[in-house]
Amino acid sequence: MVGPAHAAAIEEARRLGAAGWKVNGAGGSGGSLTLVAGSSATSATAPALARALGALDAGWTVLELAPSRVGVVVEELPMR
């Protein structure tokens, strides 16, 4: 479900030439949106897109997330 915040962010992303977007999870109010910045010379880069979205609403948080090929990992910590 595309809520008002999703719609506002999508409109801004479209204006800045984003290549695509996806509402994460169940949708509805709140939650999050993931976008792919455009690759053309006229589209905004990811950092510029992030700045523009952050400026739309001070209550929003923009995250820098990157693909993770690995799942859960467990490692030992040194004894203190």
Partner: peptide
């Protein structure tokens, strides 16, 4: 996922969080 895809997505993904949300409640 090829190395090129991972690298490109790493550079182009942007995730914006709007407000807390209870997935179970929406279900």
């Amino acid at each position: 996922l090829s190395d090129a895809v991972v690298a490109e997505l790493g550079q182009r993904l942007v995730t914006v969080v709007f407000a807390p949300h209870d997935s179970s409640a929406v279900h």
